[in-house]
Amino acid sequence: MERLGDSKLKHGSETMNKIEDSHSDPAWNQAELLERVDNDQELLRDLLNIFKEDFPLTMRSLESAVAAGDLKNSATLCHTLKGMLSNLGGARAAAAAARLEVVASAGETASLQVALDALKCEAARLLPELEAYMAEVRH
């Protein structure tokens, strides 16, 4: 079974320094998510399962779009990721997706890869936390 935090998403250390936000902020705001689902554990499991299925697929599509220099598709996919991540309380990763969306929408092809790496870096911080929590709520 594919893990949310697959190694493909874990590289990008060289772009870590480019992330503007302070790393002291948590990658995941668990309290925010629990409040959003009104502490409904069943709904929480549903959301995490949807995320587990959709996030890697969308990320892969985004990587392909960036590699192909497809700005429009990159922006759309980033928009989707941004929504997904912010709904789950992953504010830092959502912000990284938002930055990539801005870059793609502005047509800044040269900055695409850097912004993508930043997103991957944030995702790599978020996903293990979510995965650990998923294991917890399954029981």
């Binding site: 009104d38 549903d46 949807i50 959709d54 997904m84």
Partner: peptide, 17 residues
């Protein structure tokens, strides 16, 4: 909403309401 996660979250929230 094309985002399944957002759709599910809204759906459940509104059903509960």
């Amino acid at each position: 909403d094309d985002d399944a996660l957002s759709r599910r979250l809204l759906e459940k929230t509104l059903e509960r309401a």
